[in-house]
Structure formats: structure tokens, C-alpha cells
Amino acid sequence: MFAIMGATGQTGRAAVAHLRRSGQPVRAISRDARRAAALFGPEVDIAAADPTDPAALAAAFSGAWGVYAMLPPLPGSDDVVGDCAAMARAVAEAVRRSGVRRVVALSSGGAHLPAGSGVVRTLHDFEAALRHTDADVAFLRAADFLDNWAPMVAAAPASGVLPSARMPLDAPMETVSAEDVGRTAAELLVEDWRGMRIVDLLGPQEVTPQDVAAAVAVLSGRPVRAVPLPPDSLVPALLEAGAGSDYPRLLAQLYDGLNDGRVGFDAAADERRRGTVTLLQAVRRMLQPAPAGVT
């Protein structure tokens, strides 16, 4: 049996779906057990656990041979690094208490950096915590999610512009779909391997912000152009949207690092894989209304 943290999120749902299609027994872990039960039905075991609670996580991991582990985003936190470090310790402690043998941990390009990577610093700490367990661990270092474009893509057909914090607008960037992340995590859970490993995950091809705008234009039938998001506008916009005082600063630092090439993949990966979801497929889904009850 495989236990999936963040099962109601994008990558978690994809991991559950892939494992179920291959006939594997699954336990979906969520802070909201009722929502998970409504989403997956009776064929999936449900466990409620807060990612800060090692005892609840250990109970949720108990009996599982492998776990897909992640740190949920904390946009409302005023101490993102500190709060995520506490969650990382809780997950690692739960792995030790439960005796689970295999962990696939969602990480990111740039997680090898101890500083200067913005919010990705939290995943550096996550990896460090899991290295001090007895489990076999695969760190799935994913590229920037294509799905992060969803709010801008949804608004672009009406406004005619696609604001981009990634610059220059014609610079190729590595991105990957959350669906590919969840599928790859599920594959790693069942494959034959041992020890610690790093797996980089990229999309089928690099894309530029201009490519994203062009895809929106093609699929919506309306003219859309990519425009630069002024660097000094990101933090105020996130604060106005209700983010905590710390997260916007770290996100801006991450974009600075991505744009100038300081944050990316290193040469330490044991393997590099590519997803299959194309830019057009991803944008088509972003332009469709979400099913009821799915966020």
C-alpha cells in the first residue's frame, strides 16, 4: 500500500489516480478527510493528518510500504522557512516512527542551494531532514510548474495581456505539468531502486512566456501578448491578495534567481526525466472551468 500526502492537491491527485489505474492500494492523506473521501470514494483509504503533527503523520504512514511526501505551500506564513522546517522535521520523524521503507519527496530545481533560492530554500531543508532517516528516499526535483500560470492564463483572453514575472519574455524556461509530477512520483514509488537518489523532472520541451501567451491566443481565439510584470509590483500584489509578510519576499527572490540563472538544476542528479504534458494541453486545461469541489 502507498500513502500519498497532499492527496487532494494537484500532484497528489495525479499520483493517486496513476496508482489506482495500475491496481495499487492507496491511502490518501489530507487535512480534510471529508473532502478526500468525497473526491476518491470508497476504493481509496483515507487518513486525516496535519503536516505539522508527527504522530498523526506516523499513523497515516503506518502499514504503507512507500510514501509520497511533500510540504504544502504556506503563503499566509510570516516565517515560511521556519514553519516549513518544522513540517520537514515532522515528516522525517513520522517516517522514522512508522518504519516506512520508501519515500518519494517532492522537491525542486534549486533545492541543492542552501541560500539565495527564495521559497525553494524550504525544500533544501526538507531534503536535509529526510536524509537523516533510514528509508530509501528519491528526491523528485521538479521544474517550475506550468500550472502556476493558471491565474494569469484564465484572465488573459479578456485582458489581452499575460503578465510574466519570468523574464526576458523570449527566454526559454524549464517547466513541467503537475500531472507529470504526480505520475512520476507514482512510478518512482513502484520501481525497483534502493538508497538515496535525485531525479530531475522537466517538461517535454522548454517554453518562453511568449509561447504561453501564444498558446492562450490560439486556444481562446483572442489576441494575447506577454508583458513583463514590474519587479516592484509582485510583493505588493501578493500582500494585497492576503499573503503573509514573508512569502511574497521569498517568491520575488526566487524569480530573481530564476531570471538571472542562479536558481536551477545542478549536476548531482542520478537521473533526468521529461514529462509528456505539452504546453497546449496544459493551457487548454487552465482555460476550462474547474470541476465542482476541485481546487
Rank of each mutant, 00 (worst) to 15 (best):
F139D: 01
R274L: 03
I4Y: 08
L251Y: 06
A105K: 10
M1N: 02
D256L: 13
D170C: 00
A86L: 15
G99F: 05
D32A: 00
D266M: 11
V16K: 04
G41V: 03
Q253V: 08
V216T: 14
E43T: 11
P291S: 11
F40K: 05
V80R: 00
Q205R: 14
G244I: 12
G261I: 08
V235F: 12
P204N: 14
D256H: 12
A14R: 03
V277D: 03
S117K: 02
R141P: 14
F40L: 06
M87D: 08
A7M: 09
A135N: 04
A59H: 05
R21C: 09
A86T: 14
Q210F: 07
S77G: 05
V67L: 04
L19Q: 14
P151H: 07
S245R: 14
Q10E: 01
G257M: 09
R141T: 11
V227D: 04
T184D: 06
R166G: 00
S220H: 03
A237M: 15
L219T: 01
G203S: 09
P75V: 13
T8E: 02
P73I: 10
A59W: 01
A33W: 11
T133K: 06
D260R: 02
A14K: 02
L169T: 03
L287I: 05
D125K: 00
D79T: 13
V81W: 04
L19I: 15
G63S: 03
R89S: 15
A268H: 11
V104Q: 08
V207E: 14
L19D: 11
V44H: 12
A269Q: 11
G76D: 05
Q24N: 08
M286V: 07
A128R: 15
T278I: 07
R96K: 10
D134Y: 09
A86N: 13
A241N: 11
S177G: 10
L201T: 15
G293K: 01
G257K: 10
T278F: 05
S164I: 08
D134I: 06
R96V: 10
L162R: 13
I46A: 02
A217D: 02
S233Y: 07
S98R: 07
P289Q: 06
E206A: 10
F2A: 04
D79C: 13
V207G: 14
D45M: 00
A128T: 14
A17M: 05
D266V: 13
R141I: 10
